[in-house]
């Protein structure tokens, strides 16, 4: 049986600097993974490449056996929209929209908005105790609330792959642990594969499936 994600000899070069060099790994469906590494080790680049936000210099990423870089722009956009849920480190919430509109943005972009999706979003918000935030604008929320809105947006279309870039970057250890537990719980609930990028040893310790990156290569 083929893996959900299959990365082969992946290389990414920005000008003269090598961000990733000959990275190969596999990830199975429904599992939880952690990519650990110091700042500048290429872990976020790897995550963005898996998420289809960037093209590689050479190598290949296969998702369910299909080459990601062989997809045309439209298919790649669809992959980013509905297959992948991104939890960004800096939340990236649009200041001109209220939180509910921010959460529903992927559905609107993919023209898949429905009452069912709205209901799903409301259930998630209730579970994460942010129902009172939905009509508010991002600047009215605390960092923790923004993070949870970010999480609900990533899960709004029930993606098969949940990619999280330093999701605990701004939190203390107690809250970091809560977030990781929540991410695992929610990914299990959605039968999604969870990939978390972190530089934190403590967070990495919460995962049994780990990849360690050093200077762009798997250590």
């Amino acid at each position: 049986m083929s893996s959900l994600i299959e990365v082969s000899n992946l290389r990414k070069v920005y000008g003269k600097s090598i961000a990733l060099s000959d990275v190969s790994l596999k990830m199975e469906a429904g599992q939880h993974y952690c990519i650990q590494g110091a700042s500048g080790s290429g872990k976020s680049t790897l995550l963005y490449l898996i998420g289809g936000l960037e093209n590689c210099t050479s190598g290949e990423i296969k998702i369910e056996g299909r080459s990601l870089f062989g997809l045309n722009d439209e298919s790649l956009a669809k992959y980013r929209n509905s297959y992948v849920g991104f939890v960004f480190q800096f939340h990236f919430l649009l200041p001109s929209m209220n939180c509910l509109d921010n959460i529903l943005l992927p559905a609107r972009i993919g023209d898949t908005y429905s009452k069912k999706i709205k209901g799903h979003v409301e259930k998630l918000a209730e579970r994460l105790q942010i129902t009172h935030c939905l009509k508010k604008y991002p600047f009215e929320l605390s960092g923790g609330e923004q993070q949870r809105i970010n999480l609900v947006r990533a899960l709004s279309l029930s993606p098969k792959l949940l990619l999280c870039d330093e999701p605990t970057g701004n939190l203390d250890s107690a809250n970091s642990e809560k977030v990781i537990t929540l991410l695992k719980e929610l990914s299990n609930l959605n039968h999604a594969t969870l990939v978390v990028v972190t530089h934190d040893n403590g967070i990495a310790g919460k995962f049994s499936n780990k990849f360690f990156l050093k200077d762009g290569a798997l250590a």
Binding site: G51, L53, D73, E74, L76, A77, K78, Y79, R80, N81, S82, F86, F92, L94, S96, L105, P106, I109, G110
Partner: peptide, 16 residues
Amino acid sequence: SQEVFLLKALGLPNKR
């Protein structure tokens, strides 16, 4: 551009 790139990250195709 912040918003435009975010929309692209969330699945807005170049055509759109």
